[in-house]
Design a protein around this nucleic acid. Structure first.
Lengths: 209, 209
DNA sequence: ACAAAGAATGAATAGTGATTCACTACTTGG
DNA sequence: CCAAGTAGTGAATCACTATTCATTCTTTGT
């Protein structure tokens, strides 16, 4: 017998796989998932189209993986923002801001992750990650209720509302058809983020307290 | 010369067109836009596939029209709920409830209108109608600010947050993969609607007032 | 009844791009 | 260098339906 997979080969394969992932994300950052063609990705990565299929079951699986990786980064950022010291309201405020600001900084990427119409497997991932966000927020809301900075409420549903309010508010500004790269819209963006966060924080805070 | 379009013919054509629209909506109610096949629609309507194209430019145009009609109905309901007598908070409360309850009553239809991945032309319509909802809410919020039942706020952004919070909260329950038709979930639905509406109303209400 | 014009038909076509697979080129241990 | 096994290739295929259009059927006014 002869060929047996060696460490060197394993690494080379991993490298190729990473290159494919990287180039796919590059394509997605240009025009979203829908317009990312396998041939284009292969071209960018400097491999043949068939090679893509040695690393991923299908286009959809590839996309699902890219989605997973990219979103996990964002979830981690939010988790990070929620784990600073301070009371729950402050921490949630910071996390929401971070979420919105990061999205506005990479509109096409954010649109692809948040709002682009995607195929079922990717949509599935999206649901998973929306739940991940919601869970993080839910935990913080429960902390807030426990420490008394937030009133009694259905933490799970409130967290879902947070995710929805912030996503929806960003969809318009993120929409690739009308992304304005006009200079001087930083103030608008700041105002946008402020208004969203204010709404959300009020939504969590009982006016009768 | 001979044939000249007559009233009778005009009506017959209009009838055929309506039948097509009706059957398309029936298909959509079964499995959303994506799975609604032209051949199936034609079959249901009792016409040949080619006939569809005498009444609509393309599948996408047909869908856009169906979307427009269906969503307009919903927008009208919300508008109706906002025009009852009472202060802004009460009216918004009622409108949000109506929106959520109607959606939960026809989950597949609501999913198709709110969350299903759709083609560009239909997505375009969706954006238009999200704005329509937001405008209605915005108007009510401004009323509330004027009459003092709501605090100063960016009415446009708050209204967008409302739309987002309520849509997102409904996506999970509406998702066709996990629609539970288990009996006895009416209470869950009521609680769901309550929590959403509470969050939204709190979001509009300043806790410092 | 006829001719002119439109409406309806539905089998055949076409466009798209993901996916396959027969083949070539490597890698490895002996 | 060989044999066995794996990775890479990319032109050809496939799958999927929306869309077309030559033909047939209806309607209309004379």
């Amino acid at each position: 017998m002869a060929y047996r997979e060696t460490e060197k080969m394993r690494q080379r394969k991993a490298q190729a796989r990473n290159k494919i992932i990287e180039c796919t994300w590059e394509c997605v950052a240009e025009g979203g998932f829908r317009s990312a063609r396998i041939t284009r990705i292969a071209g960018l990565a400097g491999v043949a189209t068939g090679t893509i299929y040695r690393h991923f079951e299908s286009r959809e699986d590839l996309f699902a993986e890219i989605f997973r990786l990219a979103t996990q980064r964002e979830v981690d950022k939010v988790a990070e923002a929620l784990s600073v010291p301070g009371n729950a309201v402050e921490r949630l405020d910071g996390a929401l801001r971070k979420f919105a600001q990061r999205a506005l900084k990479g509109p096409m990427k954010a649109w692809a992750l948040i709002a682009e119409p995607v195929d079922p497997k990717v949509e599935q991932e999206r649901l998973v990650y929306r739940k991940a966000y919601a869970s993080l927020f839910e935990k913080a809301i429960q902390d807030g209720i426990a420490e008394g900075s937030l009133s009694e409420q259905n933490a799970r549903l409130s967290s879902t509302c947070l995710v929805g309010a912030i996503s929806e508010s960003l969809v318009g500004p993120l929409s690739p058809t009308q992304t304005n790269t006009t200079p001087g819209n930083d103030n608008n963006q700041d105002e946008l983020v402020n208004a969203i966060v204010c709404f959300c924080i009020r939504g969590l805070t009982d006016s009768r307290s």
